[in-house]
Amino acid sequence: MTRGPTLPAHRLPYPSGFSGGATIPALPGQTRVPPSSGRLAGFNAATADEAHEALLGCLHSPRWAARLAAHRPYPDLDALLAAADEAAYDLTPAELAEALAGETLPTLPAGTYSAAHTALSAAHAAYEARFGHVFVIHLGGTAPGEALDRTLEGIRSRLTNDPDEERVVTADELRRLARGRLVTHLRGAGNGA
C-alpha cells in the first residue's frame, strides 16, 4: 500500500536502549472544573492564536482547534469537552487523516525489554500497512505496566476490522485522546498522548 501525501511514515519514538516513561492521561470520574479555575479562565482569556495553538496540542486538526477557540468562553470543563466532542464528530475524512498524520506512536514504559519493542514495531507496521495511518488508542486509566499489553491487544484486534469500520474506531479513539489531553492540559499535568 502506498502512502498518501498527508500520511507520512511514522517512526517509533524510542531507540534501542529507550529509557523514557509512558505518558497516559487519566480521565478522572468527575471532570468539572469550577468557572473560577485558573487554567480554564486562562484558556478562555487567551488570544485566539494562543488558544488555537494549545488546542492543536490536543488534536492536530486546525478546523477542530479553530472551532473550539472561536466558541470561548466555556463556563466549565464539561462544556468544553462537549464542544470538543461535537467538533470531532464533524471532522471530514480528510481532516481526520490530517489529525492522524500529526499523531506519534505511544512510548513504552522504562525498562521494557527489547522483544516488546520488536513486537510493538511489527504490530504498528502491520497496522499501517493495512490502514495507511498510525495506530491510535486512548489509554486513559491504564496502569503504565499494562500500556504495552493494551496497545498490542488493541492493534491485533483492530487489524481484523475492515477499513470502514476501522475509520469509525480510529475517529472515536482520536476524540477520546483529545478529551484526555484537554483534561490533562487544563488540570496542569502536562500533555498526554
Rank of each mutant, 00 (worst) to 15 (best):
G4Y: 06
L7E: 09
A9E: 09
H10S: 08
R11I: 06
P13S: 09
P15M: 03
G17T: 05
G17F: 07
G20T: 01
G20Y: 02
G20W: 00
T23H: 07
T23P: 00
P25I: 08
P25M: 07
A26S: 15
A26F: 06
L27P: 03
L27A: 07
P28S: 01
P28W: 02
G29K: 05
G29N: 08
T31A: 14
T31P: 03
V33L: 15
P34N: 10
S36A: 15
S36L: 15
S37Y: 05
R39D: 11
L40W: 00
L40S: 07
A41I: 08
A41P: 11
A41D: 04
G42C: 02
N44W: 03
A45G: 13
A45F: 10
A46P: 03
A51C: 02
H52R: 14
E53L: 12
L55G: 01
L55Y: 01
L56T: 07
G57N: 13
G57H: 06
P62L: 01
P62M: 03
R63S: 14
R63L: 06
W64Q: 02
A65D: 00
A65T: 01
R67G: 07
A69K: 04
A70E: 12
R72C: 05
Y74D: 11
D76P: 12
D76C: 09
D78S: 14
D78V: 14
A79N: 08
L80E: 03
L81E: 06
A83M: 06
A84M: 05
D85F: 11
E86S: 11
E86R: 14
A88F: 12
A88H: 08
L91E: 10
T92W: 11
T92S: 15
T92L: 11
E95N: 05
L96Q: 13
A97L: 07
A97R: 10
A99G: 04
A101S: 14
G102M: 04
T104K: 13
P106T: 13
L108P: 00
L108C: 02
P109M: 03
A110C: 00
G111Y: 04
Y113F: 06
Y113Q: 09
S114D: 11
S114P: 10
A115N: 07
T118Y: 01
T118M: 01
L120F: 08
A122Q: 12
A123G: 10
Y127V: 08
E128Q: 11
E128H: 12
R130Q: 11
R130F: 03
R130C: 04
F131R: 08
H133I: 02
H133W: 02
H133V: 03
H133A: 05
H133Q: 05
F135M: 08
I137H: 01
L139Y: 11
G140K: 04
G140P: 04
P144K: 12
P144F: 14
P144G: 14
E146D: 13
L148Q: 01
R150D: 05
R150N: 06
R150I: 01
R156W: 04
S157M: 09
T160R: 13
P163T: 11
P163V: 09
V168E: 10
V169Y: 15
T170H: 08
D172P: 00
L174E: 06
L174K: 08
R175Y: 06
R175E: 09
R176Q: 04
L177W: 00
G180D: 00
V183P: 12
H185E: 15
R187E: 13
G188S: 06
A189T: 15
N191W: 15
A193C: 06
